[in-house]
Amino acid sequence: MSDGLAQLVLSFADEELILNRGNVNAEARGNLVAFGVAPESFDVRPVEWALVTVGERLGARFVDAVGPVTFYAWYDEQAGQLRCSVASVEPDDLPFRGRFRSVGDPAPVLALMAADAQPGVVPWADLREVSAEEAAGPDEQVEFSFPVFAVKLTR
């Protein structure tokens, strides 16, 4: 499965990608590709190699682009998917609503995938009732951030 997943990830380098600096969110959504994961047959190494290779290939493809362009990949724990996209922003300015940390190595992203025994499933025991006050918004800053493998494709 991981060799198949690695081949699918590699195919991202051949995708038709759009750059739309005027609407980075639409750009990121338009370039988004998601890959499902089978945890029982997941091997990190070929997928790690594939992500690094995609960054290299896209770097060669976008070397002359004006302004920043970033390839990035993350593990969406709620969906149980490895996701990849390209956006015309710096690696630390990726269009996420949540807190993330840009990493130069895919290992932290893939470690989350490897540790997820049931991709896309939230056990009932992990759910809790939310009060009206909590639903209105958190009072304190949330410290959790997720890793995003990011490769700046332009100089």
Results as ranks from 00 to 15, higher is better:
Leu51Val: 07
Gln81Trp: 07
Arg128Glu: 10
Ala38Cys: 04
Pro108Tyr: 03
Gly120Met: 03
Ala73Val: 11
Arg97Gln: 09
Val24Tyr: 11
Ala150Val: 11
Ala79Asp: 14
Asn23Met: 12
Leu94Phe: 04
Glu140Asp: 14
Glu77Trp: 10
Leu127Arg: 03
Thr53Leu: 14
Gly59Ile: 12
Ala135His: 05
Val89Asp: 02
Glu48Lys: 14
Pro123Trp: 00
Leu94Cys: 00
Asp116Leu: 09
Val44Asn: 00
Val44Pro: 10
Gln78Asn: 08
Gly59Asp: 13
Gly67Ser: 14
Glu133Gly: 00
Val148Ile: 10
Gly55Asn: 07
Ser88Thr: 08
Val121Ile: 12
Val109Ile: 05
Val47Thr: 10
Ala111Pro: 03
Pro68Phe: 13
Ala34Val: 09
Pro119Ile: 00
Thr53Asp: 15
Ala50Tyr: 15
Gly55Glu: 10
Glu56Ser: 14
Gly30Gln: 12
Ser85Asn: 11
Ala117Glu: 12
Leu94Lys: 02
Val109Lys: 04
Asp116Phe: 06
Val148Glu: 00
Ala79Asn: 11
Asp126Cys: 02
Glu77Val: 05
Trp49Ala: 04
Ser41Val: 14
Leu82Ile: 10
Cys84Val: 07
Ala135Gln: 13
Ala115Leu: 03
Ala38Gly: 10
Ser85Met: 04
Asn20Thr: 05
Ala135Val: 01
Phe62Asp: 04
Asp139Thr: 08
Arg83Val: 00
Ala65Trp: 10
Arg57Asp: 11
Gly67Lys: 14
Phe96Ile: 04
Gly36Cys: 10
Phe96Trp: 01
Val24Arg: 07
Ala38His: 14
Val44Tyr: 02
Glu129Pro: 03
Gly137Cys: 01
Leu51Asp: 11
Pro138Trp: 11
Glu56Asn: 11
Glu143Gly: 12
Pro91Arg: 06
Phe71Ile: 08
Gln118Ser: 03
Asp126Ile: 00
Ala73Asn: 05
Glu90Trp: 07
Ala34Tyr: 03
Asn20Ile: 12
Ala125Thr: 13
Val89Cys: 04
Val44Leu: 09
Pro91Glu: 02
Met113Ala: 04
Asn20Trp: 13
Gly120Tyr: 01
Leu153Met: 12
Leu110Ser: 02
Glu48Asn: 06
Gly98Pro: 00
Glu27Gln: 09
Ser41Gly: 12
Val151Trp: 15
Arg57Val: 01
Ala125Tyr: 02
Trp74Asn: 06
Asp116His: 03
Tyr75Ile: 07
Cys84Gln: 13
Gly98Met: 11
Val151Pro: 01
Gln141Ile: 02
Ser145Met: 05
Val148Tyr: 04
Asp64Asn: 14
Cys84Ala: 13
Ala34Ile: 02
Leu110Gln: 07
Ala50Leu: 10
Pro106Leu: 11
Thr53Lys: 15
Gly104Glu: 05
Ala114Ser: 04
Tyr75Thr: 05
Val52His: 14
Arg61His: 08
Pro123Asp: 09
Pro46Arg: 15
Leu32Trp: 05
Val142Pro: 14
Leu32Ala: 08
Thr154Asp: 06
Lys152Pro: 00
Leu94Gln: 01
